[in-house]
Each structure stands twice: as structure tokens, then as C-alpha cells.
């Protein structure tokens, strides 16, 4: 009987480890490593507040069983949707697309938590509510241009902040992206870690990035990654920081924004180019006056019916009228 109990215990242990491995097996942000606790103290996880609160209250339940879908301890893990960085005790830098809805309006600040002070979504850290959200006025949801936003926190998150680099990192500089995003590169599977991950990526030349992305790559973006793929940021890493070492001190040069797939060969990750936004960041942080973001129904389909090729036809029509006058005028003089 004792042997039987032992065998059952062994089987249960194996099953338990297998299920945990679904979360922790993949070692990378994609192609990266687990960060040492405390390595990136300015890292922030943005949480869906209603979901986090609901999990803790036990009100997020299965429609089939009526039982809670998640453990209370999973509240942060299950509700994380973006990353961010603490650039001031009460300001978090993130991507605009993390806080702008499908209708181009800014989400309500009360729907967010900023989780600070931990690298483990399953334990530790402090949740701080968001007082206000400032999206860059030039943010274009259709193109991800100017993909940057600042969150003002209701209370101080401490002084584990990071500085913005302020200049473009040189090509081939090794930058480090961090986040809790998907660690798998393929579309068929996903794996979201509870522990913060990091990956080193070389900064790519603007020419090379333009060759890959064409007009989708704007002046407010830069690329990092490998031609061969294999290492990249991925879904869940949006809004998180891309750091470079500046004299031995890590400073933030970019914000995770978008890319074609994750870690795909021939495609780089695209990051918000923070060197273009240092004045805006400092203005907002210091309470200065800034241009507000205005939600608009931006459409890229300029040829949607009716207009035709007016700017070709109109000058030609004028030329036709002038020529007609010349011809008729000549005839009258005859």
C-alpha cells in the first residue's frame, strides 16, 4: 500500500510539473532568458484592473461550472496585457496602442493598474492605480506612428526609475528588450511567462528597416533584431522598454511597438524612437502645456468611391478649355 501511495504521489508530481511547464518551459521573451529578480527595477506590468479585481473577488467564473476561472494568486498574471517603464516616481512610459481602444479613444484610467516592484507576476509587487493617461497628440492608430503614452500614477511608485536616453543608439549597439510577453515565435502555440524575460537585440540601420517595412517604417520608429530572426519581443511585451547601456548605466531608447510576427527571419522588431519624444516626455512629466490627443476616425482608404483621379483630370480639363479658346479665337480672326 505504501508503494502504491508512493507511485500515486510520483504520478501526481509528474503531472503537476508538466502543467507548470506550460508556463515556464520556454526560456525566452522570444530567444531570451529569465531576468534576475531586481535586475530591472523600473519594469512595470500594466494590468486590466477590472479583470484583476474580479479574479481576486472570485467573480470571474466559468460559464459552465460557475466556479472561479483562476486562482487569486493568478490575478496579476492573468490580467497583464502590456509593459511599461517607470521614468519618474509617478509616471509610467508605455505605448499608445496599449491605452487607446479600437474606436481610437483613450481608455479610462480606472481600468488600469501599474504593477511595480516585482519581476514575478505571481507574487510580490504593488499595484498602483492610474490617475491620468496622456497619449501623444500625433499617435496614429492606423500606422502606429508616434506610439507613445504616459500614465500618471495616483501615488508614488518609488525611485526605481529609468532615464530616457535622449539620442539614437548607434547601429549595431546591443539593446535589451524586457517583458512578460509570449515566448514562442510560431503562430500555433503561445506561452506567457510569469517571470520577467530579457533579450539582447542589435539596433538595425534605418536603411535596413526601410528595406523591410517600406513606408510603414516612419521617422518615429527604429528597429532592433536579427536578420535570421530567433530573438524578438512579442505579444504582451508592448509598451515595455528597450534599454541600451550608456556608460554602464542602462537607459531607455525605445518602447516595444510592433513587428511582422515575432522573431521571424527577415523581419525586425519595431520600437518607438524615444529620441524624437524627449521634449514631449519632459513637458508632460513637469506639468507643462502639451497638445492633447484627439480621437478621430482615421481612414487610410482615400480612394473609397467617387473621387476618381481628380488631380489628373482637372488640370487637363483646364488645358482643354485654354486650347479650345485658342483654337476658336484663331478661327474667329480668320
Amino acid at each position: 500500500m505504501t508503494i502504491l501511495k508512493l507511485r500515486v504521489l510520483q504520478a501526481l508530481t509528474v503531472l503537476c510539473c508538466l502543467s507548470l511547464s506550460q508556463v515556464h518551459a520556454q526560456t525566452k521573451i522570444v530567444g531570451g532568458v529569465k531576468s534576475d529578480p531586481g535586475a530591472w527595477p523600473s519594469a512595470v506590468a500594466l494590468l486590466n484592473k477590472p479583470l484583476a479585481d474580479g479574479i481576486e473577488a472570485g467573480t470571474i467564473v466559468s460559464s459552465l461550472t460557475g466556479l472561479p476561472l483562476f486562482l487569486v494568486s493568478e490575478a496579476n498574471y492573468q490580467s497583464q496585457n502590456c509593459g511599461g517603464s517607470l521614468i519618474d516616481s509617478k509616471w509610467v512610459l508605455t505605448a499608445a496602442h496599449c491605452v487607446v481602444g479600437e474606436d481610437n479613444t483613450v481608455i479610462a484610467p480606472e481600468t488600469l493598474y501599474a504593477l511595480v516592484g516585482t519581476s514575478d507576476l505571481m507574487s510580490g509587487g504593488s499595484r498602483i492605480t492610474v490617475k491620468s493617461i496622456v497619449v501623444h497628440h500625433a499617435y496614429n492608430s492606423q500606422t502606429a506612428d508616434s506610439d507613445i503614452a504616459l500614465l500618471e500614477l495616483e501615488s508614488s511608485a518609488g525611485d526605481s526609475t529609468t532615464d530616457v536616453l535622449g539620442v539614437d543608439p548607434a547601429v549595431d549597439t546591443i539593446a535589451t528588450a524586457i517583458g512578460w510577453g509570449d515566448t514562442t515565435a510560431d503562430d500555433a502555440t503561445t506561452s506567457y511567462p510569469a517571470d520577467l524575460r530579457e533579450v539582447d537585440l542589435p539596433v538595425v540601420s534605418r536603411a535596413d528597416c526601410t528595406n523591410v517595412y517600406g513606408a510603414d517604417f516612419t521617422n518615429n520608429m527604429f528597429c532592433a533584431g536579427y536578420d535570421a530572426g530567433g530573438k524578438d519581443s512579442c505579444q504582451g511585451d508592448s509598451g515595455g522598454p528597450l534599454f541600451v547601456s550608456d556608460g554602464g548605466v542602462f537607459k531607455q531608447a525605445g518602447v516595444v511597438s510592433w513587428g511582422t510576427g515575432c522573431a521571424q527571419a527577415g523581419y525586425y522588431g519595431v520600437y518607438t524612437r524615444l529620441s524624437q519624444f524627449t521634449t514631449w516626455i519632459n513637458t508632460v512629466k513637469s506639468g507643462g502645456t502639451y497638445t492633447p490627443y484627439i480621437a478621430s476616425s482615421i481612414s487610410s482608404s482615400v480612394s473609397a468611391g467617387g473621387g476618381g483621379n481628380f488631380w489628373f483630370g482637372f488640370p487637363l480639363f483646364i488645358i482643354m478649355l485654354v486650347l479650345r479658346k485658342l483654337i476658336i479665337g484663331t478661327k474667329k480672326r480668320n
Binding site: 486590466n48 479583470l51 492573468q78 490580467s79 497583464q80 496585457n81 502590456c82 505605448a95 496602442h97 496599449c98 502606429a144 506610439d147 510577453g181 509570449d182 506567457y192 517595412y213 510603414d216 519581443s233 512579442c234 505579444q235 504582451g236 511585451d237 508592448s238 509598451g239 516595444v256 511597438s257 510592433w258 513587428g259 511582422t260 510576427g261 515575432c262 519595431v270
Partner: peptide
């Protein structure tokens, strides 16, 4: 290309 947000 796609942005890299995670839906809860």
C-alpha cells in the same frame, strides 16, 4: 505587421 499587446 501587428502591435504587440496581449489580450487578457
Amino acid at each position: 505587421g501587428s502591435t504587440k499587446k496581449l489580450c487578457s
